[in-house]
Lab assay of single mutants.
Amino acid sequence: SDIKVHVGDITVELHNVSEEFARLVEEALRLGLNEEQAKEWAHKALH
């Protein structure tokens, strides 16, 4: 599904992702990663 993740003043739109993936992206953003890094990190975490 499509999910918007908000962290501080950052909003990341995720398309066709699981809630778990979105949660991992949100966690990575909170750790200070940028959007691209957060998506990559979440992807690796799920595989």
Score class of each variant (00 low, 15 high):
residue 1 S to A: 13
residue 1 S to D: 10
residue 1 S to F: 15
residue 1 S to N: 13
residue 2 D to V: 15
residue 2 D to W: 07
residue 2 D to T: 15
residue 2 D to N: 14
residue 3 I to N: 07
residue 3 I to C: 05
residue 3 I to S: 06
residue 4 K to G: 09
residue 4 K to V: 15
residue 5 V to M: 05
residue 5 V to W: 01
residue 5 V to T: 04
residue 6 H to L: 07
residue 6 H to Y: 02
residue 7 V to L: 08
residue 7 V to M: 07
residue 7 V to K: 03
residue 7 V to I: 10
residue 7 V to C: 04
residue 8 G to W: 02
residue 9 D to M: 11
residue 9 D to N: 14
residue 10 I to F: 09
residue 10 I to S: 07
residue 10 I to P: 04
residue 10 I to K: 08
residue 10 I to D: 05
residue 10 I to R: 07
residue 10 I to T: 10
residue 10 I to G: 04
residue 11 T to A: 05
residue 11 T to I: 14
residue 11 T to W: 10
residue 12 V to H: 06
residue 12 V to S: 05
residue 12 V to A: 06
residue 12 V to N: 04
residue 12 V to K: 03
residue 12 V to M: 07
residue 13 E to F: 03
residue 13 E to H: 11
residue 13 E to M: 06
residue 13 E to D: 12
residue 13 E to K: 08
residue 13 E to L: 06
residue 13 E to P: 04
residue 14 L to V: 05
residue 14 L to E: 04
residue 14 L to I: 06
residue 14 L to G: 06
residue 14 L to M: 08
residue 15 H to K: 11
residue 15 H to G: 09
residue 15 H to E: 08
residue 15 H to V: 11
residue 15 H to A: 08
residue 16 N to S: 08
residue 16 N to Y: 06
residue 17 V to W: 07
residue 17 V to M: 07
residue 17 V to K: 06
residue 17 V to R: 05
residue 18 S to I: 05
residue 18 S to N: 08
residue 18 S to Q: 06
residue 19 E to M: 15
residue 19 E to C: 11
residue 19 E to N: 11
residue 19 E to T: 14
residue 19 E to D: 11
residue 19 E to A: 15
residue 20 E to D: 11
residue 20 E to A: 15
residue 20 E to P: 08
residue 20 E to C: 08
residue 20 E to L: 15
residue 21 F to H: 02
residue 21 F to V: 02
residue 21 F to M: 03
residue 21 F to K: 00
residue 22 A to I: 07
residue 22 A to G: 07
residue 23 R to L: 10
residue 23 R to M: 10
residue 24 L to P: 00
residue 24 L to A: 08
residue 24 L to Y: 12
residue 24 L to K: 09
residue 25 V to R: 02
residue 25 V to T: 02
residue 26 E to F: 14
residue 26 E to W: 12
residue 27 E to G: 05
residue 27 E to C: 10
residue 27 E to V: 13
residue 27 E to N: 07
residue 27 E to A: 14
residue 28 A to L: 04
residue 29 L to I: 08
residue 29 L to D: 00
residue 30 R to E: 06
residue 30 R to H: 11
residue 30 R to K: 14
residue 30 R to Q: 10
residue 30 R to V: 08
residue 30 R to F: 09
residue 31 L to P: 00
residue 31 L to N: 10
residue 31 L to T: 08
residue 32 G to L: 01
residue 32 G to Q: 01
residue 33 L to E: 01
residue 34 N to S: 12
residue 34 N to H: 04
residue 34 N to L: 04
residue 35 E to R: 08
residue 36 E to H: 12
residue 37 Q to N: 07
residue 37 Q to M: 10
residue 38 A to M: 00
residue 39 K to A: 04
residue 39 K to W: 13
residue 39 K to C: 05
residue 40 E to L: 15
residue 40 E to Q: 13
residue 40 E to D: 11
residue 41 W to K: 03
residue 42 A to S: 01
residue 42 A to V: 02
residue 42 A to F: 01
residue 42 A to P: 00
residue 43 H to M: 12
residue 43 H to D: 06
residue 44 K to H: 09
residue 44 K to N: 13
residue 45 A to F: 15
residue 45 A to Q: 14
residue 45 A to H: 14
residue 45 A to N: 12
residue 45 A to V: 15
residue 45 A to S: 11
residue 46 L to P: 01
residue 47 H to A: 13
residue 47 H to R: 10
residue 47 H to V: 11
